[in-house]
Design a protein around this nucleic acid. Structure first.
Length: 815
RNA sequence: GCCGUGGUGGCGGAAUGGUAUACGCGGUGGUCUCAAAAACCACUGGGAUCUGAUCCCGUGUGGGUUCGACUCCCACCCACGGCACCA
């Protein structure tokens, strides 16, 4: 056995593949295109970690397969380079975040190269590069010009430790119900602040409908639908103190059951009618108390609390009745209108509240088929009762009647509400794209008109100034605020100030898949013809953590751009899969603090990138989470050693029949499996085939050639080495690369057997096996089965009621 | 509570109506060796009569459809993920 030296082999090919950009994607090629995308990494720490190689290996195998199948494959990579870790590290060390980021990118790229990922490096992008963020800023100005970016005072999540505001999507709930930041898991609180927001709710309907047109897993679609949170109902105006105030309800059919109304404590109307309130101090106490309660406390309360506002009443339209009004913090200011019609008989929360405060409960719907209704509370659909002339009508029908009537009176209309909130888009941090706006006396001005390319090129990129101190301020101002030279400018002859907040680090990743299509364009964010050729992304691989962050945000940007005719497709990604997580060998999560992780570059040193890649593929399905088993890579390394030695058995002689059969069925199976991303079973096919080859004396040339091809996506280095040697290429030429060769075919005739063994069942239980010729008629099989010794014994004296034969598969006798 | 995904050997997993556990890890026994490691070979779901063999049980639980169910249908249990006073 000759010596397999993975280091020597892998170093050699890394350099040659890069120099000649073997994995080049060609714009406007005649070949059919495939755009295979994986979420680009945030460059932090020294090199790729286990999670990265877990994410990137399977897409690379798939992209390599498609390339060999004759597709023009775009498989790009770049750096999501703005963000907090580099900035925090910079604050600690005093080294500029740009410097830290660039150093890290160098290390990351080296890791990518060592892993043998087949990337077109001519398309590498970096979101912190001014040539890139020039266009991120330009795209932001499109939102601004179209009224979708607004400076607005709203309740916003503030993280004291990160010293910045966060978007709704960046806030998680921990096990104890505390709200924490998505990055860093730090506590957050709600504050009223003026911030830049992007009006994603205006795209709620489009984002929802688009989900029906894309091939995403149900879990992602469900999570996004849930996040968007559409509910259909009606807006109904109630008369309160001579004024008309709207509520939103999904159940206008319960209007006869309204026995009270509730305002959220923050509702501005309270101030407006303050003079009429008889119990001002009670109301004021309640408002103050709920102000001081955190969201967590509000939720932790088992009981609903509230106070009646005495002195004012509400008039229920349609039912024409007066009801009392309360304030209670179970009504939220930022959903619906902050004012609700309460129907205790048909809403759980209203029911609890009414019980506690002894408010009247009127049942207006009873279940369709219930003989007697024990519980007062009923939240389903049914038949109207206690509703005057409408009693007996179905609640679904009554819903329509109510809305139609209110519409005629001008007191209501059917309406839709969404849970999704404005996307808070400014951050009080240094390391991000400056927002290219100017505060003037007449309001905000864009630094340029996006339509005018001359103006654009003069004013963009608005470069992030080099400041001596990039640490965040305690007062919530951006670090850029301290840089007065940069901040204070003249706009149209008058003093003005630059916007000092930066964009969140989602900004660059919202459109990076577009820039890969045309990464070096200085005059456009991307050429429309190139976008027409490459978009949309055919396969998008990434992490589950981005389901309602990046994946929703970038769909929003794309849909907006599509409405402006900037991009040719309505959706950015046609297909999506979320990858699983690699756990530590003991089944716990890998973490730096626990030091239980595995370092992929160490494994590459020890066993080779080929072994690591193949191991990752073999361990399990892409979208599953499972522990790392350190023994597998040893076995896979052995497998590769075997492959390396087996080339010595290759000869001019033809392979024998069993080898031909094993080969053709392997090619058939692996092709199907890679197509379906079942890399784990594809590797097991390779193992089965190699176990077979180890037993044979000679290997035919054609078979070996085909084997190297199917092996190459998994172990590209050793495959290239053996391919060059096998063909006797003395000098490296790009076009001779293993990885640019066509994928092998297979021939069914070798796979089909002449005789096969099939099981014979009696009453559904396997009792014996018989050997038949492929394609034998049912009569012949029946005769064979019935004359089998064991069958004779077991059927003796019994009548065979039914004979079932599934061609070439199974026989079942029913007694 | 609601939505989603999933439950198969000691472990990772294979099989989407036709011989359950492919492939691999681990384990047991053996070869080699003074010995160990490595390498290689054999066995490896549980149980019973017995050691050619034969039979029973077995894919979260309980039902159902079918000649035949891990696979399809109904109900339930559990785990994981998301959302959660959303009117």
């Amino acid at each position: 056995m000759r010596e397999y030296n993975h280091k020597k082999i892998e170093e050699n090919w890394v350099e040659k593949w890069l120099r000649d950009n073997v994995y080049e994607a060609v714009d406007f090629s005649e070949k059919p295109k495939k755009y295979i995308l994986e979420e680009f990494p945030y460059p932090s720490s020294n090199s790729l970690h286990a999670g990265h190689v877990m994410r990137y290996t399977v897409p690379d195998v798939y992209a390599r397969y498609l390339r060999m199948k004759g597709y023009n494959v775009l498989f790009p990579m770049g750096w999501d380079a703005f963000g907090l870790p580099a900035e925090n590290y910079a604050i600690k060390t005093g080294i500029h975040p740009a410097k830290i980021t660039q150093d890290t990118i160098v290390n990351f790229k080296e890791s990518f190269l060592r892993m043998g990922y087949g990337i077109d490096w001519e398309r590498e992008i970096d979101t912190s590069d001014p040539n890139y963020y020039k266009w991120t800023q330009w795209l932001f100005l499109k939102f601004f010009e179209n009224g979708l970016a607004e400076y607005k005072e709203t309740p916003i999540w503030w993280c004291e430790e990160l010293k910045t505001v966060l978007a709704e999507e960046e806030v998680l709930t921990d096990k104890d119900g505390n709200k924490i930041s998505e990055r860093g898991l730090k506590p957050v609180e709600k504050k009223m602040l003026k911030q830049w927001v992007l009006k994603i709710p205006e795209y709620a309907e489009k984002l929802l409908q688009g989900l029906d047109t894309v091939d995403f897993p149900e879990s992602i679609k469900a999570a996004q639908r849930n996040w968007i949170g559409k509910s259909e109902g009606a807006n109904i105006s109630f008369e309160v103190d001579g004024e008309s105030i709207e509520v939103f309800t999904t159940r206008p059919d319960t209007i006869f059951g309204v026995t009270f109304m509730v305002f959220a404590p923050e509702h501005p109307f309270i101030k407006k009618v303050w003079d009429k309130i008889e119990n001002q101090s009670d109301v004021n106490d309640y408002i103050e108390a709920s102000k001081n309660k955190s969201d967590i406390e509000r939720q932790a309360e088992k009981d609903k609390t509230g106070v009646e506002i005495k002195g004012i009443k509400a008039k229920v339209p349609f039912a024409e009745r007066e009801v009392p009004i309360f304030i209670a913090d179970y009504v939220l200011m930022d959903y619906g209108t902050g004012f609700i019609m309460a129907v205790p008989a048909h809403d759980e929360r209203d029911y609890q509240f009414a019980k506690k405060y002894g408010i009247e409960i009127i049942e207006v719907i009873k279940p369709e088929n219930a003989e007697s209704q024990d519980e007062v509370l009923f939240t389903g659909d049914g038949v109207m009762i206690n509703s005057g002339e409408y009693s007996g009508v179905s609640s679904e029908e009554f819903k329509k009647i109510v809305v139609e009537n209110l519409e005629k009176q001008g007191k209501g209309n059917s309406a839709v509400n969404y849970k999704i909130r404005d996307w808070v888009f400014s951050r009080q941090r240094y390391w991000g794209e400056p927002i290219p706006l100017i505060h003037t006396e007449e309001g905000f001005k864009a630094v340029c008109n996006t339509q005018n390319i001359k103006e654009v090129n003069e004013n963009l990129p608005l470069e992030l100034p080099d400041v001596p101190d990039f640490s965040p301020s305690d007062d919530g101002a951006s670090p850029l605020e301290r840089n007065s030279e940069w901040v204070n400018i003249t706009y149209e002859g008058k003093p003005a100030k630059r916007e000092t907040n930066t964009m969140p680090n989602w900004a660059g990743s919202c459109w990076y898949y577009i820039r890969y299509v045309d990464p070096k364009n200085d005059n456009e964010f991307a050429d429309i013809e190139k976008m027409k050729y490459w978009l949309p992304v055919d396969r998008y691989f990434g992490g589950a953590e981005h389901t309602t962050l990046h994946l929703l945000y970038s769909r929003f940007w794309h849909k907006f751009f599509h409405d402006l005719n900037l991009v040719p497709t309505p959706e950015p990604y046609n297909w999506r899969i979320n990858g699983g997580i690699l756990l530590a060998p003991d089944g716990s999560k890998m973490s730096k603090s626990k030091d239980n992780g595995i370092d992929p570059m160490e494994l590459v040193d020890k066993y080779g990138a080929d072994a690591l890649r193949t191991t990752i593929c073999f361990m399990g399905p892409y979208d599953e989470t499972y522990p790392y088993n350190p023994n597998i890579i040893k076995t896979v390394n052995k497998l590769i050693k075997n492959v390396y030695s087996l080339q010595e058995k290759v000869s001019d002689e033809n392979s024998d029949e069993p080898t031909l059969k094993a080969y053709h069925s392997m090619v058939k199976n692996i092709s199907e499996m890679i197509e379906n991303l079942k890399m784990n079973t594809a590797v097991s096919e390779i193992m089965i085939f190699i176990n077979h080859l180890k037993k044979v004396e000679v290997i035919g040339k054609d078979i070996w050639e085909g084997f190297l091809k199917v092996f190459s996506p998994f172990a590209p280095f050793v495959a290239e080495e053996l391919w060059q040697e096998f063909n006797g290429f003395s000098e490296w030429k790009k076009e001779n690369s293993m990885h640019l060769q066509p994928w092998p075919g297979f021939d069914e005739k070798f796979i089909q057997e002449e005789t096969i063994t099939i099981p014979v069942q009696i009453n559904g239980k396997v009792r014996t096996e018989i050997v038949i010729n492929c394609g034998d008629t049912e009569e012949i099989v029946k005769e064979k089965a019935l004359s089998d010794e064991k069958v004779l014994k077991l059927t003796e004296g019994k009548e065979i009621k039914k004979f079932i034969y599934v061609k070439d598969k199974i026989v079942n006798l029913v007694l």
